[in-house]
Structures are given as C-alpha cells and as structure tokens.
Design a protein around this nucleic acid. Structure first.
Length: 544
RNA sequence: GCCCACGUAGCUCAGGGGAAAGAGCACUUGCCUCCGGAGCAAGGGGUCGCAGGUUCGAAUCCUGCCGUGGGCGCCA
C-alpha cells in the first residue's frame, strides 16, 4: 500500500542522487531532486526537474546535464523502471514497468477498505479539531453545514494518517447573546415583542410555544437549541467527541487562572475601567478588552481559557485546529497573541478559515440572514438533498472559495450530480462482482491471478489512479484540503465508468483468466472508491 | 481607510513554479447482441481580472491597481 508508493518514490530519488554524484555535480546543502507526475502521460510516470534546477549552478546546458543523468540511470536502472528519457527543456522522465501497477492492485486488495491509503506519520500526536461551535441560541443553518462537513472530513483524513483526533464543539452558553436569547423566548411565550437586538425568526415562536411555564428559560432554551443542533448535525453524520461548555470554565476557576497567568506574563493592564490584553505586543493590530467596565467578560477571555484547556489536553506535541467562518478571521490574530502571551508556541494553534456559503434555489439567491429570521436551517438542507449529497457538495470546493450551493442541483438524483456519479461507479463495481457470483464464477485467490493480462488503457489508468489515492490522502491531510479527495473521486469515477463500458468482466467472450484478473482489479477499484468516500464521510452504496 | 480570501471556458469550480491550460454542467454529434445507457466517445468554447517585477521557465511567487465577498465592537 502506501509503503510501496513511498518505496518507488524514494528509490527514484535515491537513483537521481546517485546519478548526480556520478556526474560530479556539487549539490547545494540539503538538495532534493524534484520528482513529480507529469501532466501528460506521454511524458512518463514520473519526471524530475533536477537538471533544470542545477544547470545554472553547474554552468552547463540543462539538456546536457539531463542527458548525463539519463545515461547513468539507464546503466543503473532502478527497480520497476522500464525507460529513462530526456524531454523538453531538460526533464528526466521515468516510465515504469507494468509490474509496478500490478503491485498497486495487490496492495489495495490485501489492505482492504480499512487499511488502504492509511499512513502512520501522525502516530502519537493528538489533534483537537474544533468546528461548528454555533451559539446555543437557535438551529444550525446552512452555512454551518460547510464547517461541519469540512471539520469532520478533516478529522477523518487525519485519523487515516495516524493522528489521534478529537472532534470538539464549543458551547457559548453564557454572555450577552444567551441573555438576549432567553429574553426573546420569554417575551414570545408571554406574547410580548422581542427585546431590541433580540432573536426573532420562526423557531423562536415555535420553541416559545412549546416551553413550559415553570422552567428556567435560559437553561431550557439552551437545552432546546443544543438538542436541535445535535440532531441536525447527526443528520449530516457529524458527531462530536466533546461538547465543551463555556460555563464549566467559570465553574472550575479556569478563567480566573487564565487571568492570573496573563497578568503574571505582564500581558494585561487596566484602563478606562476595563481590563485589557496587550495583544498588540504579540502581533495583533490593537489591544483587546478582556473584562468590560460592567465587570462582564468579553467573548475573548473564556475562549482563551478554553484554548489553554485544549492545549493541556492535547499534550506537549498536540495540535489544535479551529475551523472558523470568514466572519471570524479578524479574531485569529488576537487568539494567537493570547497564546503567545501565555508562552505557548502559536504554531500549535492552526485556524482554518472557511469562506461563506451562498444558497440558491431555482437560480435565485436564498438569503442566510439571522436578522430577518428567514435563515435556511441545515436540517432543511439535509432533508431536502440527503446527507451524502450535502456533504459531497460542501466538500467539492476549496474552503478558500466562497461557493454557491444550489439546492435543486444538489438534490437532483441525476448524472449531473457528482455524488451520484461517484456512488454509481461504486455500485457498478459491486454489481459486477455480484454478477460474477450469480454466473457461478469461482474467484481465484488474488495471489494466483495473472495481472499481466490487464493491458487495456482503461485498466492501466485505473491502476495508476488507485496508486495516486494514497498520495492524495497525505496531501489532503497535510494541506487541510479534503476537496482534493473529492476531486480524485470524480476523476477516478470517470475512469471506472469508462472501464465498465469498454471492459466486460464476465461474459461469453471473455477468457476465464481475464475475468479473474479483472475481478481483482474491480475489487481494488471498489476499495479505492470506498476509501475516498469514507474519508469524506459519504456512504458507498452497493446498489442504487 | 486598513486586514483576509477570491477573480481561470457561457455557468459552477480544479490546478497554486515546469512541458500544448483541466473537469462537470450547458451546447453539437455519434454509440445499446452482452456486467444497469443513472453510461461511454468525439467536437466547439480561454488576453488564467489588468500592469509591472523575480525566474532558465509564472495561471501559479512579489508589488501596485481594478472588481467581488467578508471583517475592522467593552457582540459572539
């Protein structure tokens, strides 16, 4: 599996190193020959720009250097390499032997869905991924869905890379917004107008109507909102390991301890009746208030205490990843400043900003507005389009782009909807295997099957892409970019449909040995699709 | 005004130092004796926002400008 990929890669890098030293090039400190997959297959399976990068230093023509490297490499062919060539301005291209692809297939089949594309470079490291963290003052809306799908997919990717991951939701269950929320609920229950700056929206009416008379409004309202959020997120298959209450930080004294720690660090001062954090000493634009003149904490102070708590739980080498909406980006500098003031490495806190979501229905924009109360709830979105389609749509693009979620298109169970295209590819592979069973084909052990029979371009392409998946998972995890997996899935599904169309597996005209080889390939491809879908948290149905 | 992200095909978006710019949708045209046609194949469609710079090489990195969205609270 990934083991093999690492091996082919390092074997090529080592070979390039040897070739370079044979030419007597004196290499810059720590030089690593570049090795990448060429955009065009005609350029080979792997390509190195080492000659281009070093030509100037050596003082010769890049082609000449590339020729010298290629000559050495041809005389000392690394394993699985069929051909070494020089092309373009001075690229050294490697073409691999089919044996390489055969091991890709057997690795995938041997590893299965649970182990293929699994890596262990994260072993021993804890990551706390905090996401959604909506206020407990109402339902989660469609915009939260993006953070929810993203946070969970990122967690899954990190888990596949060996990290110990905690999914965490921070509950702002105290402060001004909670007061306003409780006041709004009480007002509507009593048939009065909601207070100024209060919460309106239909859900306030509904919840106020179902609220018993003799309850603590705050507490009841909070439980009501949390239950609703939890249920809506569960509909999207997002579950948290920890729902962390801000109130517990007050109860445990953690906030007081944080104040003391900040004061000890000389990072606070009193001015104009408030307590300030010297955040501008630590990279923020300005200083920030921690305790208001009325004695109440700002949002920031408990949140600093919370991050301190998380760092402690994550351990010495632990990492915190926060997923915040674009409307919170201005908050990043002050939180990092606070972490720095407390003497911890700000690098251990990573904040991913997700750009906002635009909703469309029938090509018309649907406003996600809290003020008017006509927000589209996440629950509505999931109920309308389904959890799989919603997640796939949320994870289709980079989090850096604000994207348009078209409810009609995402809901459509048709080919133009990528999630069905990908799931269909998986179902088709399953149906081939089922067909083989129904036809009474006895599957040989994959170790006894001659994979050299797989020579159709569709088959070769499938094998190459299965190999790429293992790298895609690493890149997606390291770049915090689950959409890389989504992109791979779409491309791979396209190859699978092509294979399905061109390469029959069972049938009267198919040689039994070829059927066997293709059944193994079908299994490997099915595993690839299932692994990709699993890292996104999208189901891989056997039939549709 | 300052800060962040984005600007790539008609639309939604990949690619984020390398070789001739990609996908899906939409449009045009082919393909069902046979594992599900919910599919496959072919075609048209681009000054990669604009202008400089760095580099052997820039859609990609840097600077400025223009445009879009978001932020700039003792709200969260």
């Amino acid at each position: 599996m990934a083991q093999f990929m690492a091996d082919i890669r390092s074997s090529l890098v080592n070979a390039l190193h040897d070739a370079l030293s044979s030419t007597g090039v004196d290499l810059p400190e720590g030089f690593q020959p570049g090795l990448e997959r060429p955009a065009r297959r005609t350029h080979g399976d792997w390509s190195s720009n080492a000659a281009l990068a070093l030509a100037k230093r050596v003082g010769c023509n890049p082609r000449e250097l590339a020729d010298a490297l290629a000559e050495y490499l041809r005389a000392n062919l690394p394993e699985h390499v069929d051909e070494v060539s020089v092309a373009g301005p001075g690229f050294v291209n490697f073409r691999l032997a089919p044996t390489w692809l055969h091991s890709v297939v057997t690795d995938a089949v041997a590893a299965g869905v649970d182990h293929y594309g699994r890596h262990n470079f994260g072993a021993g490291q804890t990551v706390i991924v905090e996401f959604v963290s909506a206020n407990p003052t109402g339902p989660v809306h469609a915009g939260h869905g993006r953070g929810a799908a993203y946070g969970d997919a990122l967690a899954r990717l990190l888990e596949r890379c060996g990290f110990k991951v905690y999914r965490e939701f921070y509950i702002n269950d105290r402060g001004t917004q909670m007061d306003l929320y409780a006041a709004s609920l009480a007002a509507r229950r009593d048939g009065k107008a909601v207070p100024e700056e209060g919460y309106s929206g239909q859900y306030i009416e509904d919840w106020a109507a179902e609220m018993p008379r003799d309850v603590d409004v705050r507490s009841w309202g909070q439980q009501r909102a949390l239950a609703d959020q939890r249920a809506a997120l569960a509909l999207l298959s997002v579950r948290f390991d920890n729902w962390f209450s801000e109130q517990t930080l007050l109860d445990s004294g953690a906030i007081q301890q944080t104040l003391v720690a900040l004061a000890d660090a000389g990072a606070t001062y009193r001015s104009e009746g408030a307590l300030w954090l010297r955040s501008s000493d630590y990279g923020d634009d300005k200083d920030r208030v921690l305790i208001k003149t009325d004695g109440e904490y700002t949002y920031l102070l408990p949140d600093i205490a919370y991050h301190r708590n998380k760092l402690e739980r994550a351990g010495a080498h632990g990492l915190l990843i926060n997923v915040w909406g674009a409307d919170h980006h201005g908050y990043v500098a002050r939180m990092k400043a606070a972490m720095t003031a407390l003497g911890c490495d700000p690098e251990r806190l990573e904040v991913v900003i997700t750009q906002l979501v635009r909703l469309e229905r029938d090509g018309e924009e649907v406003r996600i507005s809290k003020r008017t109360g006509d927000l589209i709830e996440l629950r509505e979105v999931v109920e309308e389009v389904g959890a799989d389609a919603a997640r796939f749509a949320y994870l289709l693009q980079s989090m850096d782009t604000s994207f348009t979620f078209d409810l009609d298109k995402v809901a459509a169970q048709v080919m133009e909807n990528p999630v069905f295209y990908v799931q269909m590819a998986h179902a088709r592979l399953c149906s081939i295997a089922a067909r083989a069973r129904a036809e009474g084909v006895v599957r040989a052990d994959w170790r006894d099957v001659d994979l050299a029979l797989l020579s159709h371009e569709r088959e070769l392409e499938m094998m190459r892409q299965i190999a790429v998946l293992a790298e895609v998972i690493v890149a997606a995890a390291n770049e915090r970019a689950p959409h890389r997996v989504t992109v791979w899935l779409r491309e791979f599904a396209s190859t699978v449909h092509g294979f399905y169309h061109d390469c029959y597996v069972v049938g009267t005209g198919i040689a039994p040995e070829l059927t066997q080889a293709r059944l193994v390939l079908v299994d490997a491809a099915r595993i690839g699709l299932a692994v990709g879908l699993e890292t996104l948290g999208v189901s891989a149905p056997e039939a549709m």
